[in-house]
Structure formats: C-alpha cells, structure tokens
Simulated assay, not measured.
Amino acid sequence: MLKGNFVRGLGYLGEGFGLIRQPGLRLFVVIPLIINVLLFGLLFYFMAELFTGLIAAAMSWLPDWAWLQSLDWLFWLLYGVVILLMLAYGFVIVANLIGSPFYGYLSELTEKHLTGQEVNTDDGWAQIIRDIPRALWREVQKILYYVPRALGLLIIGLIPVVNLVAAVLWFGFNSWMMALQYVDFPADNHRVSFPDLRRSLAASRLSALGFGLPVALAAMVPVLNLIVVPAAVCGATAFWVRENQSS
C-alpha cells in the first residue's frame, strides 16, 4: 500500500517558489540561474534537430500495418511526450551536475530559514568549494540510478501497442526521479546515503510523487525550467523538514 499524502506533496514546489525570494537565499539562486540560462541556450540550439531525428527513428520501427499507420498521429504525440520528458530530465541532470555545490548550500540555508535558525552566508564560498567533490559524487550516483531504468523504459516505448503506456510510465518515473533528485540535497547535508534516501522516500511515496510531478512538468516548459531548479531545491528542503516531522 502506498503511503504519504499526494496533495501535500503537490504544495512543496509552490512553497519553494516563495522561498527563493527570501533575501538571505537570493544570491545562491541567481548564480546557478545564470549558469542555467547559458546551459539552456546551448541545449535549445541542438534540441530541434535531435527531437526530429528521434521521432523519425521511433516511427521507422513501426510495422507496416494499416491500422497502426492510421494512428501515426498518436504515436507522434506519445513519442514526443516521452522524448520531451527525456530532454527535460537531461537538462535537470546537467544543470544539477554543474550547480550541485550551490544547491547543496542553498538547501542548507533554506533549512535554517525554515527551522528558525540564523541564515549566515559569511563562509558560503569556502563551504561551496569544500563540498564540490561530495556534491559531484552524489550527482553521479543519481545518474547511475537513472540511466538503466530510463533505457528500459525507452525500449518499452519502442514496442508497438505496448508503447501506448510508455508516456504514463515515463511521467511516473520522472516524478519519482525529480523527488529523488532534489530531496537528495537536504539528505546529503545530513549525510544520509543515497540508498537510505531511496528507502526513506519509498516510505512516503505518495508525498514524493506529489512533489515530483509538478517539478517534472515545469522542467518541460521553456523559460520556466530555468527557475524551477532552485525553487525545487527549496521545495525539496521544505519536504525534508515537514515530512520528517510528520513521520
């Protein structure tokens, strides 16, 4: 039986958007945001041709059955959604890999703000530099967890008829991955291992999916996906504080 509160989970991203406007947190939102703008510009440049190529390759796998050909518009739509989800999470992976030291520190400041502690950034840059190796290793662990499962879903998406459920599976998987991706920042600050984090989120899976779903949707929207990353970090920290209190 799935545990947690899906509706409560949905509210954390909105709380995150409110938190990124707090004076003590803004600096560590703006710098990664600039990085994201530059990164998104490069990805957008290559996205159009990649999208067209992947769609054409997927359609070429379909057998020449009349009833399937009449549904080609549906397959274009489904494959388009799947590829957009892949590109959205691909953007998140690269953005977090580059900005992870900033986001770990942003999460720490957010938790202090939420728990009523003094938000002091005097040693911010020194701490960010110290945390770079550990932050990068955490991102690598998430990529290693994501890739084989994403490949499995991609293969399912290439099987005629079975691929009709691929978009639904991708939405569920991406929602789970977004929760893992961002709640990992406060978890890492508390030295919770990645396997332990997965077990912790699984214990309140509905809350995790509720948080991850709007993040996954926002990551697919150009421009909005630039600011959703720091908002998701702050929202995930609120998730960490509130869900740990309620468990």
Rank of each mutant, 00 (worst) to 15 (best):
residue 43 L to T: 02
residue 51 F to S: 02
residue 59 M to H: 05
residue 72 D to V: 11
residue 74 L to N: 05
residue 49 E to I: 09
residue 47 M to K: 11
residue 45 Y to F: 10
residue 61 W to I: 14
residue 44 F to D: 08
residue 41 G to F: 08
residue 73 W to M: 10
residue 79 Y to K: 03
residue 40 F to A: 12
residue 63 P to K: 01
residue 43 L to N: 01
residue 36 N to H: 13
residue 81 V to T: 08
residue 53 G to M: 03
residue 36 N to S: 10
residue 82 V to C: 15
residue 49 E to V: 03
residue 42 L to M: 04
residue 40 F to G: 07
residue 74 L to D: 10
residue 80 G to F: 11
residue 75 F to C: 06
residue 36 N to Y: 11
residue 36 N to E: 09
residue 59 M to P: 03
residue 43 L to Y: 04
residue 52 T to H: 09
residue 33 L to G: 13
residue 38 L to T: 05
residue 42 L to N: 02
residue 65 W to S: 08
residue 46 F to I: 04
residue 31 I to E: 01
residue 75 F to V: 13
residue 46 F to L: 04
residue 43 L to C: 07
residue 64 D to K: 11
residue 66 A to D: 15
residue 44 F to M: 12
residue 62 L to V: 02
residue 40 F to L: 14
residue 34 I to H: 05
residue 55 I to K: 02
residue 58 A to N: 01
residue 55 I to S: 01
residue 83 I to R: 05
residue 82 V to M: 12
residue 79 Y to V: 04
residue 32 P to M: 08
residue 66 A to C: 04
residue 30 V to C: 09
residue 40 F to I: 07
residue 55 I to Y: 01
residue 74 L to C: 09
residue 78 L to C: 09
residue 35 I to K: 12
residue 45 Y to G: 00
residue 73 W to F: 12
residue 66 A to Q: 13
residue 30 V to K: 11
residue 74 L to V: 15
residue 64 D to T: 06
residue 55 I to D: 01
residue 36 N to P: 03
residue 48 A to F: 13
residue 72 D to H: 04
residue 51 F to L: 10
residue 77 L to G: 00
residue 60 S to I: 05
residue 66 A to P: 06
residue 73 W to C: 02
residue 83 I to A: 05
residue 76 W to G: 05
residue 55 I to Q: 06
residue 46 F to E: 01
residue 74 L to T: 13
residue 54 L to S: 13
residue 61 W to C: 14
residue 67 W to F: 15
residue 68 L to W: 06
residue 76 W to V: 10
residue 74 L to W: 09
residue 40 F to Q: 15
residue 83 I to T: 06
residue 79 Y to M: 12
residue 33 L to E: 15
residue 56 A to P: 02
residue 35 I to Q: 07
residue 81 V to H: 03
residue 59 M to F: 01
